[in-house]
Amino acid sequence: MKARAPRGREAMLWLAAPFLAAAALLVGLPALLALGFAFTEYDALSAPRFVGMAHFVRMWNDPLFWTALGNSLLFAGLAVPLRLAVALGLALLLHRGGRLARAAVFLPTVVPDIAYALLWLWLLNPLYGPLALALKAAGVTSGGWLLTPWGARGALVALTVFQLGEVFVVLLAARRELPEELYELCELEGGSALTVFRKVTLPLMAPTLVLLAARDVVVSLQTTFVPALVITQGGPRYATTFLPLYIYENGFEYLRIGYASAMTWVMFLVTAAMVAAQLWVLREWRASTTRQA
């Protein structure tokens, strides 16, 4: 055995063994298990009982499931473009000069979710939250953000925009990869800042932006959970009941593990479809630009 100890590039794969094993145990196996649960009635107390497609039929007729799915899609549709646009603007503004400013932009991202949610619960408090008091001092009296469906949704979107550090740092790195000579050339030709952005920066950074958008869609399914649990409790009138929250309630509170597993798989398939669509757009876009060139 010792004499045949693997050498060379092929042997490097062994370094990935713990990663692959853990991924199989922590993600692969649970995913398959969830697929199995999806066709059974299971409450963690008695043995699972096969029920066929019953959960999927029930999901089809469950208005709350559709509300939760719609809310999740709506949240991704609002938060992802907003986060990307703000992070791109910040990265272009701050890629040179002012490390302190970059640190300040990143700082809210490291605040733990539960502390962050409590902080916003206080900031948005309609009676004595700082935002309400500041607005009152300015003569505007309105503090019921969390009491209307769109106010609550907007608040949750707004608070995720502050936690854009990861996207911001990746865009900073991507901007620094662009050749400076290109920008010097543009300056010589006297192009306006907007033209330079449209003709140089945006096309060159588009692949990174699309990949980040795909990732952010997935991330948005996790970031909503704690704020929805702590700040709005899914309300008002289910306006912030997102799929993960609804799955959590069904699986861990009502012990409807089969039903929750079925919803989990639907959530995963919807995410995969959205990511695939974005990657397809990227490929088409790349193909079209190489054809032009």
């Binding site: 196996l29 649970p30 995913a31 799929l243 993960p244 799955i247 959590y248 593990i257 597993s261 959530m267």
Partner: peptide, 14 residues
Amino acid sequence: MVPGTAVWLARFAV
């Protein structure tokens, strides 16, 4: 691409 929220339940079972 797998949202962390998607594996909670079955991972707990494991």
